[in-house]
Amino acid sequence: SIKEIEKEEIIKVLKEVNFNKKLASEILGIPLRTLYKRLKEYGI
């Protein structure tokens, strides 16, 4: 599903940037606030 793909992509990017959420949100092209929402939604 799209949610699974998105979750995997978020985890992959977070690992690449050593869990720097600000940098991860910039790489993913989403606002930091949205990233936090996704992390909560996906239980990351």
Score class of each variant (00 low, 15 high):
Asn18Asp: 08
Leu32Pro: 04
Pro31Glu: 09
Leu32Thr: 03
Tyr36Asp: 11
Pro31Thr: 15
Lys21Cys: 12
Ser1Ala: 13
Gly29His: 06
Leu28Cys: 02
Arg38Leu: 15
Leu32His: 02
Ala24Glu: 00
Lys12Cys: 07
Ile44Gly: 04
Glu4Asp: 14
Lys15Asn: 10
Gly29Glu: 05
Leu39Cys: 07
Lys12Met: 07
Ile30Asn: 00
Glu9Leu: 15
Val13His: 02
Tyr36Cys: 13
Leu39Ile: 13
Ile44Tyr: 10
Ile2Leu: 14
Gly43Asn: 09
Ala24Cys: 08
Pro31Ala: 11
Arg33Asn: 13
Gly29Ser: 05
Leu14Pro: 00
Leu32Asn: 02
Ile5Ala: 13
Ile27Phe: 05
Arg33Ile: 11
Ile5Gly: 11
Arg38Asn: 06
Lys3Phe: 10
Pro31Asp: 15
Glu41Met: 07
Thr34Tyr: 08
Glu9Gln: 15
Ser1Thr: 13
Lys21Asp: 03
Asn18Arg: 09
Asn18Cys: 11
Gly43Phe: 09
Leu28Lys: 00
Ile10Gln: 01
Asn20Lys: 04
Lys3Asp: 12
Glu6Arg: 10
Ser25Leu: 02
Lys3Tyr: 10
Lys37Asp: 15
Ile27His: 05
Ile11Lys: 06
Glu6Trp: 08
Ala24His: 00
Thr34Trp: 06
Asn18Ala: 08
Lys22Asp: 04
Ser1Gly: 12
Glu26Tyr: 10
Glu9Gly: 08
Glu8Cys: 11
Leu28Val: 02
Lys37Ser: 08
Tyr42Leu: 15
Ile27Cys: 05
Asn18Pro: 02
Ala24Ser: 02
Ile10His: 02
Arg38Lys: 15
Ser1His: 13
Arg38His: 13
Val13Glu: 01
Ile2Cys: 10
Ser25Glu: 01
Gly43Cys: 11
Leu32Val: 06
Leu14Asn: 00
Ile2Gly: 13
Leu14Trp: 04
Phe19Gln: 05
Tyr42Gly: 03
Ile10Cys: 04
Arg38Pro: 01
Lys40Tyr: 11
Lys22Glu: 07
Glu26Lys: 14
Asn20Gln: 05
Ile44Ser: 04
Glu6Ile: 09
Ile10Tyr: 05
Glu6Pro: 09
Asn20Ala: 03
Lys37Tyr: 07
Asn18Gln: 08
Lys3Gly: 11
Leu32Phe: 03
Pro31Val: 04
Lys3Glu: 10
Phe19Pro: 02
Asn18Phe: 09
Tyr36Phe: 09
Asn18Trp: 07
Lys40Gly: 06
Pro31Phe: 04
Val13Asn: 01
Leu14Phe: 04
Ala24Asn: 00
Glu41Leu: 07
Glu8Pro: 04
Ile27Asp: 01
Glu8Lys: 12
Lys15Ile: 14
Lys22Met: 10
Ala24Arg: 00
Glu26Met: 13
Lys37Asn: 10
Lys7Asp: 07
Arg33Trp: 12
Ala24Phe: 01
Ile44Thr: 05
Lys7Met: 15
Tyr42Val: 05
Lys3Trp: 10
Ile11Gly: 03
Arg33Ser: 14
Val13Lys: 03
Asn20Trp: 05
Thr34Ile: 13
Arg33Asp: 15
Val13Ala: 08
Val13Phe: 03
Ile5Asp: 10
Ser1Cys: 13
Tyr36Met: 15
Ile27Glu: 03
Lys21Tyr: 15
Lys12Thr: 07
Leu39Asn: 01
Gly43Gln: 09
Ser25Pro: 00
Ile5Lys: 14
Lys40Ser: 08
Leu28Gln: 00
Ile10Ala: 03
Leu32Met: 08
Glu4Ser: 10
Leu35Glu: 00
Leu28Trp: 01
Leu39Thr: 02
Ile10Asp: 01
Ile11Phe: 10
Lys3Gln: 12
Glu8Ile: 11
Lys21Gly: 08
Ser1Leu: 11
Arg38Trp: 15
Phe19Ile: 01
Lys3Arg: 14
Lys21Thr: 15
Lys12His: 07
